[in-house]
Structures are given as C-alpha cells and as structure tokens.
C-alpha cells in the first residue's frame, strides 16, 4: 500500500478516509487534525495555560505530545487512583514522558483527597470502580485547574470514546447525558473550568499509531477494573459496524454534534450552586465527591486514613503552589 501524499510505503490505512499514509505524513495528518480541531472549536489559545489530564495511556500522552510540539502552554495532571501496579506503572510513564520533554507534571493522589484509593472506595461504596473513579477524576481535574489558574482542562478522549458514550446514552435515551456530550464543555459557573477534547475526531487506532510512531512509552495494559465494562462492549459493537461500513463511528458521533445535539440542549437547564463543604459546584447541598469522601471516612472509622476534618475542603492544598507555578510556565 502506498502513501497518498508521497507515494512511499504506507504504514497505516485509514479506511474511513479512503487513504493511507507513510509514518511522516501520518504524523503530520494527526497533528493537523488536532490543531485544527482546537482552533475551529475555540478550545484554547496559545496564550492560555492548559492542564492536560494524563493517564499514562496512548491518548492523553499523544495529545500532550502534540501540544508540547506545537508550543502550547501546558502542564500535565496525573491522578493517582491507587490501583496497584497499574497506577504505579502508568504514573512512571507520565513522569518519564514529562522529564524527557522538560514539561511540568503535577500528581494528585485520590487517596489523599477521598481518604482511600479506588479499590477501597469500590469496596466501601459497593458501586462499580469506574463510577467512583470517573467522579473523582472529574472533580480533581476541575479543582486542580481552577486553583492553579488554568484556562482549560484537556483530556485525551478520542472518536471511539465519544461514539461509545453516545451509543450508551442513546440506548438509554438519557437526555441530560446527551445534552452534556460535547467536545467543549464551557464553564457554566465561576467555579468550573472549560473541559475540552482535542482528539475527538481521531480514532483510537490513530492515537495508538501516533503514540507508537512517536516512540511514546505508554501503558498498553488495561486498567484491571475496566474488564467487562459496558463501554468496551459498546466499542466492540461499533467496531463491527465500522468494519462493515468504514466511517460509521465518525458519522454517528459527528453528525450527532451537527444535527441532533441542539435538540437535547434545550431541555438541559441545571441550577448549579456551591457545595457547602468544599465550594465546588453541585446541584444539591453537598457535592457527590464530598459525599463519597464522607462515606469512605465513616467506613474507615475513627482510626481510618480519612481526610483531616469533615469540614475541610479536600487537600490539594500542598499542591496549589505547584499548580500555580505550572500554569505560569511558558511554552518550551
């Protein structure tokens, strides 16, 4: 197979674009797609400091790599979930990635914020690990970006992630989830930071190929709690469709954004207020994250490794100066 650009040997076929690229032309294509998405969707400017949430996986490290190369002002945020070897290895990869590029990485431990790592939280709450994990990550990302003075939080969500989420929401006709699904979630409250997904037009296979061709040492192993997750079943179904009809995933998600999302947005007016405990946004009196931390604290008993005081806002305190320093960095 030949590269459509230069006629050299192709390393990746993109069936949905009916094309194939050599390594150099694919990397250029990937960068162009990402940077055009950032510009077209007004995700952030080159002057704004951006906090990139990195997991050690291919998507977030590929995104950070593109942004660092393009000269954006970024710092990485690694959220240590406390998931045994998986967390240790993914953290080590993020640290090595940052060190190689002279980029700033801030590490926040879920255990320091909630009182326990995700495995213990799962046992205490008796809910799937993914649910406490998602809640904790969203909370910590926003809080870290807000307190560090960042303009946006960027995540590595790719086309497959977005299509699978849309598929799941559609199966349930979950109108509020459908309304919230967007590549740019604007800050609708002073305590919220804009959340953006610059890779949403690129498939999972494309981000994996980018990471491989760039020599990024990412964690290939899957989170042990993800096995059997519904979202993986949805991805499998969508990949079968994609195989039979290239472009199905992109058409499903991108046409949703163009043609259908506005219909759901109209029904979604949420009244946000500040959590009485930590000051972050919530629709109730106390936010879901503080309630989760309370639950962990109660289960641990008086001797447990809980956050110091129930009335304390979650830590991050020791990290605020780190975060502020990170947001003040300039492009390398």
């Amino acid at each position: 197979m030949k590269c459509r650009k230069c006629g050299g040997r192709a390393v990746l076929e993109l069936r949905r674009h009916n094309t194939a690229f050599c390594a150099d032309d694919f990397l250029a294509f990937f960068r162009r797609q990402t940077l055009e998405t950032i510009r077209r969707w007004k995700m952030f400017t080159r002057e704004e400091p951006v906090l990139v949430a990195v997991s050690g996986g291919k998507d977030s490290l590929a995104l950070w790599d593109v942004l660092v190369e393009a000269g954006y002002r970024t710092a990485g945020l690694y959220i240590d979930l406390g998931i045994f070897d998986y967390s240790r290895e993914s953290r080590a990869r993020c640290e090595a990635f940052a060190a190689e590029r002279g980029a700033r990485l801030v590490v926040v431990r879920v255990a320091a914020e909630v009182g326990a790592g995700i495995p213990q939280v799962r046992d205490v709450t008796r809910r799937p690990a993914c649910s406490a994990c998602g809640l904790s990550k969203r909370y910590i990302m926003n809080r870290a970006a807000l307190e560090g003075g960042f303009s946006a939080v960027a995540t590595g969500h790719n086309l497959d992630d977005e299509a699978a989420t849309l598929f799941g929401s559609t199966l349930r006709w979950d109108a509020s989830a459908l309304a919230r699904q967007t590549p740019v979630l604007e800050a609708s409250h002073p305590k919220l930071v804009r959340r953006v997904k610059p890779l949403f037009r690129l498939s999972e296979r494309e981000t994996a190929a980018y990471a491989f061709l760039r020599g990024i040492d990412y964690i290939v192993e899957e989170c042990p709690f993800a096995r059997g997750a519904t979202s993986l079943t949805h991805k499998e179904v969508l990949n079968r469709l994609e195989d039979a009809s290239p472009g199905a995933k992109a058409s499903f998600f991108l046409n949703y954004l163009d043609r259908a999302r506005h219909l759901f947005q109209a029904s979604e007016a949420v009244d946000l207020r500040e959590c009485a405990r930590c000051g972050q946004t919530t629709t109730g009196e106390v936010c879901a994250f503080c309630r989760l931390a309370d639950q962990v604290r109660r289960a641990a008993g008086p001797t447990g490794p809980a956050r110091a005081e129930p009335t304390d806002p979650p830590a991050l305190r020791g990290l605020i100066s780190d975060l502020r320093a990170a947001s003040e960095i300039h492009a390398p």
Binding site: M1, A10, V11, L12, E13, A20, A23, G57, K58, D59, P128, C130, S131, G134, D160, D161, A164, T165, G168, E204, R205, T207, A208, A209, F212, L213, V220, E222, C223, F225, A226, R227, A229, T230, S231, L232, K235, E236, N239
Partner: peptide, 27 residues
Amino acid sequence: RELLTVDEVVREDDVVELRPVISGGRR
C-alpha cells in the same frame, strides 16, 4: 519497529505483535 498495513506479507520467520488499541472503561 514498523507498523504493517493489511496488504503486507508476513513471512514464516517473522515475529509480529497484535497490539490492541481499545482502552477505557465505564459502566
């Protein structure tokens, strides 16, 4: 250190890795 497209030939004495690209979990 190379990626192969579907039309490439893998020889008898080659070693190839099939690396999954699917990640993420949510219930």
